[in-house]
């Protein structure tokens, strides 16, 4: 464990908690893409099956359980409890265009052709594009609530910190995982446009306006 991975995990946890609390407190999921949240729940489910097979550390197990729990709680709030506030008309990204290619790629490019490894690879590829429905929805509505932009900021920051963690681990431990690194670079690049807007419009403090 190094400081970059720890702050990355905490940034990820912060994003997940910010979103869950926002929906819970405002009792509304307006402006939130339920599709992205379903994809994240799928990412955690397929990646953390090793909860059943191996124990790494208390930290590792605890964080995985929190991530999975919060992901499903968020999906529940969006599609069940606060369903009336779900903005389905703007959450129209065709997720099958993400899941099918990612599923195929996981079969073709992986470290080991075993079920657990293919599911892990699928989850890594899926995570890199899981935010697209959310970014697409914001570009359609043309704006995002401030709290939603904080959620996206921490979510984008987490994988950027993981990239530094992988540089650190390669240099000090000789460890690297090309699949995770390439997917992580793609994932972080997708946030670049948002990061620019978040920083440049941060001063205004008003609703962020994304280019349509």
């Amino acid at each position: 464990m190094n400081i970059f991975r720890l702050t990355g995990d905490l940034s990820h946890l912060a994003a997940i908690i910010i979103l869950l609390l926002k929906i819970w407190k405002t009792r509304s999921c307006a402006g939130i893409s339920g599709k992205s949240q379903v994809l994240f729940a799928l990412v955690f489910t397929t990646r953390y099956l090793d909860l059943l097979t191996s124990f790494i550390s208390l930290y590792n197990t605890t964080m995985k359980i929190i991530y999975i729990g919060c992901a499903y709680a968020t999906v529940y709030l969006i599609y069940m409890k606060f369903k009336a506030t779900y903005d389905g008309n703007h959450d129209t990204f065709r997720v099958e265009f993400l899941v099918v290619p990612v599923g195929g790629l996981a079969f073709l490019v992986n470290h080991d052709f075993s079920p657990l490894e293919i599911l892990w690879t699928f989850s890594i590829y899926l995570e890199s594009v899981a935010i697209l429905p959310q970014l697409f929805m914001i570009s359609k509505t043309g704006e995002a609530e401030t709290i939603t932009t904080h959620y996206l900021f921490f979510l984008g920051l987490y994988r950027a910190l993981y990239l530094i963690n992988w540089i650190w681990r390669f240099y000090f431990e000789g460890f690297f995982d090309m699949i995770a690194i390439v997917a992580g670079v793609v994932q972080t690049i997708l946030y670049c446009d948002f990061f620019y807007l978040y920083v440049t419009k941060g001063e205004s403090g008003s609703n962020k306006i994304n280019p349509a």
Binding site: R5, W120, F176, I179
Partner: peptide, 10 residues
């Protein structure tokens, strides 16, 4: 080395 056997990252 390539990816570690044990996946210790979240």
């Amino acid at each position: 080395t390539t990816a570690k056997e044990v996946k210790d990252e979240l």
